[in-house]
Amino acid sequence: MDLRRTMLFMPGNNPGMLQNGGVFGADAIILDLEDAVAPKEKDAARLLVAQSLKTVDYGTSEKIVRINPLDTFARKDIEDIVPCKPDALLVPKVESPEDIQEVARLVAAAEKSGQAPVKLIALLETPCGIAEAYRIAKADKRVVALAFGAEDYTASLGAKRTKEGTEIFSARTIVVNSAAAAGIQSIDTPFTDVNDREGLIADTQLAKQLGFKGKLSINPRQIDEIHNVFNPTEQDINWAGRVIKAIRKAEAEGSGVASLDGKMVDAPIVARAERILFLARLLGLAEEVVL
């Protein structure tokens, strides 16, 4: 299970930012060839991102490149970028499973022999993308996550984008559900007011509650706050530990059913507890190996 609590956008034509991308501790860095780069500079940005992938140390952050859409520069992007071994491509404005399949074909053709397969993350930013979310999630083995982009989405809807987010509520839950049904991750839209710390925390808490596993981010200052929200709390970890103890106890007693605090502990609860403990140990928040 890959950690994608934060996925930080870095403008692909900005050397100063690209060379420092590894410093911020984001789970994933997105080297952006799309919205952050002017059309005249797509060629220069592509070369800069290619060089950066090969030489910059991004530490443990996943290296993702947001390519351009299929109807503009995606082909050239894939051809030049894939041999530089990004971990994944973020595909913008995905509207159909065929979009993903076309990208997957191009990626396969561009991969060098022996190269680890490049993953795909589909960015759903339009009503069609949302409508086709489940089929897009299932479109190819390479797809590891669905991400939601609310700015373009609300523009297409003709609705006003608000911090509170009622207008994107359905789209968000569709993305979460579709990804879950396909057995992959879902990533929430960025919170665009960089100066509103309280707003960021509230929005991220909502995303977590809805079931998103992470959030796109547009500013390094947001990383730690988002991590704090997605990280299991001490309460979560204690609860999870007790769940596992209850299961073990039931097993030891030969009883088929475990219970905790008067409630039955069934498979989904165990799965949630295991996930919390796994995350906790990965993040160094829990020491004992309970499992």
């Binding site: 050397p15 070369l47 800069l48 950066s52």
Partner: peptide
Amino acid sequence: LDCTIQARVLA
């Protein structure tokens, strides 16, 4: 940095 110089010359 070197990687930037290379990228810009290539571009």
